[in-house]
């Protein structure tokens, strides 16, 4: 999946499932959209579904520091690369 495709799918999830309005790639998820750690855990479950593999506990802990949609995309690319290896 290219970064653009990833971005499209993540934005769609955030709008449809997390009630985001006009999300920008560098918006602060917490301050601008009220996205908290419970949302983060729910989003990780959806990312697992999307990618078709389980994200490890350590990777999930790293994901808790994500602040923007760009960070989410970076995170997904990193774990995808790690799982390919």
């Amino acid at each position: 999946m290219t970064r653009d495709e990833l971005q499209e799918r993540i934005v769609a999830i955030l709008v449809d499932e997390f009630e985001f309005e006009d999300p920008g790639l560098d918006d602060n998820l917490r301050d601008d959209h009220g996205f908290d750690s419970i949302d983060a855990i729910e989003l990780l479950a959806k990312i697992e579904e999307m990618l078709g593999f389980q994200i490890s506990r350590k990777e999930k802990e790293q994901a808790m520091s994500i602040r923007t949609i760009s960070d989410i995309l970076d995170f997904i690319e990193t774990i995808q690369a790690a799982h390919k290896n």
Partner: peptide, 16 residues
């Protein structure tokens, strides 16, 4: 109530 530091791991574990 928050997920900073060690609490992130605790929250993931309990929520899952």
């Amino acid at each position: 109530a928050t997920s900073d530091g060690k609490n992130g791991a605790r929250m993931i574990k309990h929520l899952e």
